[in-house]
């Protein structure tokens, strides 16, 4: 006896598999919560903090302070205070609210992570696709380039580039924050595309021998169209997985650069910078390093879980 069943699609299957991957669901939930908190949270939190500061007798300079001015507000009655109602994440050596700083820093850290990921994926996909599709000399050149980049020591080169070109980029763009942001994204993204390129190339190498590509070639479809319309959608799975993993490593890279003191200006509290500043006080005020460190940990862990889940879900052999 036949019952009516909705047709199963590739994406539907993937989603079903993804839902069964509990760590991935957990990661998704945490990530969404973090993103929501960082994007929308400040609107509520700046009111709350402003109210708390008024109540504690250290009112902010402006009537309706935004997050940017609150992170620089000194509450001298709360120097190195542990988490409390007024300062849920505690306060630092100048009485600045750590939660406000974490929220502000989270925006930058996540923005850098996502932008660097997009850059790495775009670059990696383009290079991998060209190398994989055309093969031959082009493939050789591009893959040796990839090997070259893989052989470069990432952190020292990154530090060198940021150090050498920061002034120039900032000068060109006229704004510190934008300039440094762009440079960080370019540098982090520019050193993270290699694995994506290899994955995409490998996928393309196997796909391009399939019948449907032969058919497309025989029909005279142009090469770019074949790459974009026929090959890329089939390589979507591995790319998405690489992308998620890339976000995590980009956040770590940004934290490392900020931790080492190059990168954003010293009053921009990215998560990495907060950990650096807090590391001075591990004994007197451990929360200063633990909270931002925990946020980096949680974010990267969640993203990696999601990546794992996607890998399993998008693999049709499972």
């Amino acid at each position: 006896m036949w019952t009516e069943r909705s047709p199963r699609s590739l994406m539907g299957d993937a989603w079903r598999r993804f839902r069964r991957h509990r760590p991935a669901l957990f990661g998704c939930a945490v990530l969404c919560a973090l993103l929501l908190t960082i994007t929308l949270g400040p609107f509520f939190y700046q009111r709350y903090l402003s109210y708390q500061l008024h109540a504690s007798g250290s009112p902010p300079r402006e009537a309706n302070p935004d997050l940017r001015s609150l992170i620089d507000h000194f509450d001298l009655r709360a120097i190195l205070k542990p988490p409390s109602m007024a300062h849920p994440f505690g306060s630092d050596d100048l009485g600045r609210d750590l939660l406000a700083r974490c929220l502000y820093g989270g925006r930058i850290s996540l923005a850098v992570g996502l932008a660097a990921m997009l850059m790495a994926i775009a670059l990696g996909t383009a290079i991998g696709a060209i190398a994989g599709f055309y093969g031959g000399v082009i493939d050789q050149i591009l893959m040796r380039l990839t090997d070259l980049f893989l052989a470069l020591p990432g952190i020292p080169i990154t530090l060198l580039i940021v150090y050498l070109f920061r002034e120039r980029v900032v000068g060109l763009l006229g704004s510190r924050e934008v300039g440094v942001f762009l440079l960080m994204v370019l540098v982090i993204g520019g050193f993270a595309w290699m694995s994506t390129a290899r994955i995409v190339r490998a996928t393309f190498l196997s796909l391009k021998e399939r019948e449907f590509i032969m058919a497309a070639l025989a029909l005279g479809v142009s090469h770019p169209a074949i790459i974009v319309r026929h090959l890329l959608p089939n390589a979507f799975g591995p790319i998405v997985v690489a992308a998620t993993l890339e976000v995590g490593s980009a956040i770590i890279a940004e934290s490392t650069i900020s931790f080492l003191g190059v990168g954003f200006s010293p009053d921009t509290p990215t998560w990495g910078r907060l950990v650096t500043d807090g590391s001075q006080y591990l004994q007197a005020a451990p929360w200063l390093a633990l909270f931002p460190g925990g946020l980096i940990f949680l974010t990267v862990l969640s993203i990696n879980f999601v990546g794992d889940g996607l890998r399993d879900a998008l693999d049709p052999r499972r």
Partner: peptide, 24 residues
């Protein structure tokens, strides 16, 4: 850096914007 933060805030009180920079 803490001194810089205080001075930046002090100067913001009178309407001066300060861009901080720190080198090794």
């Amino acid at each position: 850096q803490s001194e810089q933060a205080i001075i930046k805030s002090n100067l913001a009180d009178v309407g001066i914007q300060v861009d901080l920079e720190a080198y090794d």
